[in-house]
Amino acid sequence: MTSLTTIIRRSRLRDQMFIIVGVLATLLGMITLLALLLDLSRDGFGRLHWGFLTSFPSRHPEKAGILSAWVGTLCVMVVTASTAVPLGVAAGIYLEEYARRSWFTEIIEINIANLAGVPSIIYGLMALGLFVYQFNLGHSIQTAGLTLAILILPIIIVATREALRAIPQEIREAAYAQGATRWQTVWFHLLPYSMGGIATGVIIALSRAIGETAPLITIGALTYIAFLPPSPVHPESPYNSMSWLRSEFTVLPIQMFNWVSRPQKEFHLNAAATGLVLLVVTLSLNAVAIVLRYRIRRRIKW
């Protein structure tokens, strides 16, 4: 017969062993992340100099750079953010503050949950069929921006709703008691108070969009672009032009994919350097989001 102390000792031992396993499992992720960073740095750090950022891609790996790629990423993100943020925040506000429980709201909710599970390449196919061939928007920055906007819309909607839900009901009632309309309540109270939470969601969503490759390949983003989109600012009247929207483009992840797929080792170094740039951008965006979330949680106590 085993005594009570043996049983206790055994289960303590099993607890200890599980803690070791748990720490190891957690470390597996961290170590991979570290290995990824070190591997990219080892291969790509040598290439990261000013010229790499200010040159176009080239047949000669040592002369090639990512100028057109990062400008493309920037332009696409401008379109994506200016479409997805107003649309997503508006949809979030409607669902959280206006919509009554009905079969229609139910459908919208299920739909948003399902959209989050749709593979990104399917969004690309939809954009190819709809934007490129139905609306004739071309293989352009505007098509890419809209595609990514649709892709990140669910993330922004969900973040907006969560931020709004965290605001206590009393705030709304206080506003109504002062005679505010629903929209005035939203605009002067709810939006300012939920701004931090919404911003966190937007940042996470944009960092996801920056790294997306597959849907942009699907809509026919070119892999070799040795020109920049036309400048939005012109010296003579009307001083600005939106023609950059219709320009062909490439983005950082596609440039990286192009270089990875080549057999020559030198191009792989360029790919690593591009990967480093991508990693620095996406990881720092995420770090900002984490800090923001943490500060909101500490500061606001309703």
Binding site: L40, P253, T282
Partner: peptide
């Protein structure tokens, strides 16, 4: 840990193929 899912997948592709 959540940073793991923030890394662009093309970077993971590079890592899988070349590391």
């Amino acid at each position: 840990l959540e940073l793991l899912s923030a890394v662009p997948t093309v970077v993971y592709g590079y890592f899988a193929l070349l590391f």
